[in-house]
Design a protein around this nucleic acid. Structure first.
Length: 895
DNA sequence: CAGTGAGCGAGCTTCCGCTTGACTT
């Protein structure tokens, strides 16, 4: 008989197994094992008829939750039940936070153990910590569990009562929730500011001066009055903000001033040196890791987490979902020894640095994210490569930097005077780089990154008379507030305490999937739907989309956990009764007119935008007629101005613009804007010609700058360039779904495609140039085996003599034989691989590949609801055969 | 690929937080 220990994750199970006695069996629950039913198919038959069944919470009977085991957890639960049979003690070792406590409680409910049960908690995985934790076990904290359950129920009530309202009033398939709706609202508010933004412009002077060295200075004051710069403008008017005592220079004034100052003597009137110090940023949490990785490595939150998970599973870093900046003693010691070895004692912070968490509602069940172990491997020592290397490198540097000395800098500010004009020059000297040697935190605003650059001024003193080498007038324009990026959205949500480390990445996924935002070169741009939904929620449920809603809820949950508040009255007040959500939603349902809710009004547009079942469209009055026109699919409110609206409508009222007459066919060519953007069409659509020739406008060509020549060219694609001198195969140029390309027809060898560079023009590209492009090796993902050499060649496959090699792909290391690829098992080192081991892996894959073809057909998606761009959730039942065999193999090998 | 903006009506969509596993090279 033995003790069964249950933790959340298999990786945690593997590590703590080493610190427990031999007769302890450690299993993983894989997160939560029970939950409210997610969709109608999960609702058990016996409650399906009930009014509250769709909610999964019996709101008529003290909010009793209906718990089910989600499909993908059924197997785990049976396995855990089985494991418990041979145990004479059960130890629940899930995380010591609200969710972790709840998992333990659900396990108890499900497993109904007849043997003694203990609740064990630890914050560090070391021999000592685990042994101590095992001695100090407690029971499950029912109040903490209640707090979790309250959170769960509240989120369900919000989400599952507001979403149906949106289906009725705006469009089907939409969603609302405590977290996502606030996130969407942040995006919408920022976009509203951008639309309201009025650009202001101002001029100033820049001087290049010389005094024992060159330096630059900027005009700051004129006759004792400050010269206006960007911060003096009111973003809503584009004018100088009220109450500012500044002089605003326009171009003429700036040039006149330049004339007047030219040739006049300059004097240094003041010189100030200000020493400053900077401290290193705290170690990574999930949120800060995602932010930095997005800024520095350009990884999405999701990719960051995927790579971090790999690093964690291979034992390179500590747990990647955390809100704590706490470092264990051993981590601090390891970081300090790294600093000493790599940078020397001078660079060590005099005292070990420990950080404390500031963000709201942090639960701190884990350590900060840092290199694993009691001594850190340097990035080079790890043998990692690609994204894994980059991310580890980032984590290593940030962690090591926390134990480094402050950086000491001197800010130098020089005031200069010429006639009545005051100039300023600022420099920065890094006296001692300290932690900057290892790590500089990134910025969302690339301008701000300059802050850390050293700007050396020549040694100047008061009374110096520098020569003016050059003086120029420079015009500036104020910029609208920047859109949110993934990084800045996560940062904002975290600082408001909204969302959890495990969900930051999926929040962004949700709002993109629901069609609330599009990612355009790293920026999150809200859609028309986002505007409509946000307006409805703000107007009718202002409390729920207020960022402070979550922090108030958290406060109550904390009180429930400590016993100072009771859960039932809280939920009752929130949902039932006169002021409750249920009543409110019902009342609003009859008040809100769908036609109004579907409409987005913009101050600067006369036409209205409506959300239709096929996407957003414009509606305007033309005399007594109502005209509607679709807005192209990837357009957002950011793209829509009065001019474009006009264009879209004109196409409907007066027919499309004619570009000209086709010189050969004599038919007219039209430029139209369709659901996929602007395109040209040859002739009209008629009964006997239902499909006139059409072609999309490529990037850079707009309806405005489109010439007849270009239009004719586009309509004549694909264009034959000639034949290949070596093969005699045809070479053509055209535009495909991925943009302009050239293709070489190699007969039975297939076609060789290459994308054109942005500097090439499909309509004019020559045969010579095409041959040049075709001669370049193919880029892109399919050819990594050609561009990247094998990490190791293991030899020929006995079956067919084809080589068996190890490669590295974006998903880690894998063995390749012909077209078969198999990932290496966890922890398998490249050096230890043999041909035999590789053949074993390939064999297991090749045999299971045959079976797997029969399973696929069951997954046909029932997603026929038109445009809602949801990515179908992939939840196929796992084909256990291959996985379990390889898993058990690697287990026996490692033990 | 280049429209539509309304209907017979069944059954369904949807939340937040814990986890990993399927694919792919």
């Amino acid at each position: 008989m033995s003790t069964l220990v249950i933790v959340e994750s298999p990786t945690k199970a593997r590590t703590i197994r080493n610190y427990l006695p031999r007769d302890f069996r450690v299993e993983a629950s894989m997160g939560h094992v029970r939950d409210l039913p997610q969709s109608a198919t999960d609702i058990p038959a016996n409650v399906k008829g009930e009014k509250w069944a769709q909610l999964g919470v019996n709101v008529e009977s003290d909010f009793e939750p209906l718990y089910v085991i989600p499909k993908d957890k059924k197997k785990i639960v049976t396995q855990l039940k089985e494991a418990l049979k041979s145990a004479d003690e059960l130890v629940l070792a899930t995380d010591e936070d609200r969710e972790g406590e709840s998992i333990s409680w659900h396990l108890l409910q499900l497993l109904q153990p007849k043997v003694p049960v203990k609740r064990m908690v630890f914050h560090e995985i070391t021999q000592d910590a685990i042994r101590k934790a095992l001695k100090d076990c407690r029971t499950v904290d029912e109040q903490l569990v209640r707090a979790q359950e309250t959170r769960r129920i509240l989120d369900r009530l919000v989400g599952y009562t507001l979403s149906p309202l949106l289906w009725k009033k705006i469009a089907k398939g939409l969603s609302a929730g405590r977290v996502q709706s606030v996130a969407v609202r942040l995006l919408v508010n920022r976009e509203r500011q951008r639309r309201a933004f009025r650009q202001g412009s101002y001029w100033d002077l820049k001087a290049t001066l010389e005094a024992k060295g060159e330096f630059e200075a900027k005009l700051t004051a004129l006759a004792g009055t400050k010269v206006a710069n960007g911060s003096d403008f009111d973003p809503d008017t584009g004018q100088i903000a009220a109450g500012r005592n500044v002089v605003l220079l326009n171009e003429t004034q700036a040039r006149e001033l330049l004339e007047r100052l030219t040739g006049k003597p300059w004097t240094v009137t003041d010189l100030e040196e200000r020493p400053t110090t900077r401290k290193p940023a705290p170690p990574f949490t999930t949120s800060t890791l995602q932010q930095e990785s997005n800024r520095k490595l350009r990884l999405s939150a999701r990719d960051t987490m995927r790579v971090a998970q790999n690093l964690y599973e291979q034992g390179y870093i500590t747990y990647m979902r955390t809100d704590s900046v706490h470092l264990s003693e051993q981590a601090i010691a390891a970081a300090r020894s790294c600093v000493e070895q790599m940078y020397g004692k001078n660079y060590l912070s005099p005292q070990p640095r420990q950080y404390s968490t500031k963000s709201k509602g942090a639960q701190e069940a884990h350590e900060a994210i840092r290199p694993a172990g009691s001594s850190f491997r340097t990035p080079k020592e790890t043998g990692l490569s690609g994204r894994e290397f980059d991310l580890y490198d980032l984590i290593w540097k940030r962690t090591v930097a926390t134990q480094m000395a402050d950086s000491r800098q001197t800010q130098v500010i020089v005031q200069l005077q010429v006639e009545d004009a005051g100039f300023r020059s600022s420099g920065k000297r890094i006296d001692f780089p300290g932690f900057l040697r290892a790590y500089v935190e990134g910025y969302d605003d690339p301008e701000a990154a300059l802050e850390d650059r050293e700007v050396i001024l020549p040694p100047l003193k008061k009374g110096d008379r520098p020569d003016c080498k050059n003086l120029e007038a420079i015009g500036h324009e104020t910029q609208p507030p920047a859109r949110y990026t993934e990084a800045s959205l996560v940062k904002t949500l975290e600082s408001e305490g909204i969302g959890r480390p495990s969900t930051y990445a999926s929040i962004i996924g949700t709002i993109v999937d629901r069609g609330y935002a599009q990612i355009v070169s790293n920026a999150l741009v809200p859609t028309f739907t986002a505007f409509a939904v946000t307006a409805l929620l703000e107007q009718h449920f202002p409390d729920l989309v207020d960022p402070s809603f979550t922090s108030k809820m958290e406060q109550t949950l904390d009180d429930i956990a400590t016993g100072e508040a009771a859960w039932l009255p809280y939920l009752r007040k929130f949902y039932s009764g006169d002021a409750g959500l249920e009543t409110l939603v019902k009342a609003r349902e009859s008040q809100i007119e769908a036609n109004v809710a579907r409409t987005v009004a913009f101050d600067d547009l006369e036409a209205k935008v409506r959300i239709g079942s096929y996407g957003p469209y414009i509606e305007a009055q033309n005399g007594s007629d109502t005209v509607t026109a679709s807005i192209p699919k990837d357009w957002t409110p950011a793209d829509l101005d009065a001019e474009l609206v006009e264009k879209l409508l004109k196409q409907k009222t007066e027919g499309p613009d004619k570009v000209g007459i086709h010189p050969e066919t004599g038919e007219p060519i039209y430029v139209k804007i369709g659901p996929h953007g602007p395109y040209v069409q040859l002739g009209e659509k008629t009964e006997d010609k239902p499909k006139p020739k059409q072609a999309s406008l490529p990037k850079g060509v707009t309806p405005d700058n489109l010439t007849l020549e270009t239009a004719v060219g586009l309509l004549s694609l694909p264009r034959l360039l000639g034949t290949h001198p070596a093969t005699g195969g045809k070479i053509q140029a055209s535009i495909g779904p991925y943009g302009p390309y050239v293709v070489h027809d190699q007969g039975k060898e297939g076609k060789d495609y290459r994308s054109l560079k942005s500097t090439d023009n499909v309509l004019t590209v020559t045969l010579e140039r095409a041959l040049e492009i075709l001669a370049e090796p193919k880029k892109g993902r399919r050819t990594s085996s050609k561009s990247k050499p094998a990490l190791r060649e293991l030899g020929a496959h006995p079956g067919d003599g084809e080589p068996v090699n190890i490669f590295e792909g974006p998903y880690g290391l894998y063995v390749k034989h012909g077209k078969t690829n198999v990932g290496l098992p966890e922890g398998q080192k490249v050096e230890d691989m043999t041909l035999d081991k590789a053949l074993e892996l390939l064999a297991s894959k090749e045999s299971s590949a045959k079976k797997s073809t029969t399973r696929k057909s069951t997954k046909a998606s029932a997603n026929g609801n038109g445009k809602a761009a949801t990515t179908a959730k992939k939840k196929t039942a796992s084909s256990s055969t291959r996985k379990t065999t390889t898993a058990s193999k690697s287990k026996t090998k490692s033990s």
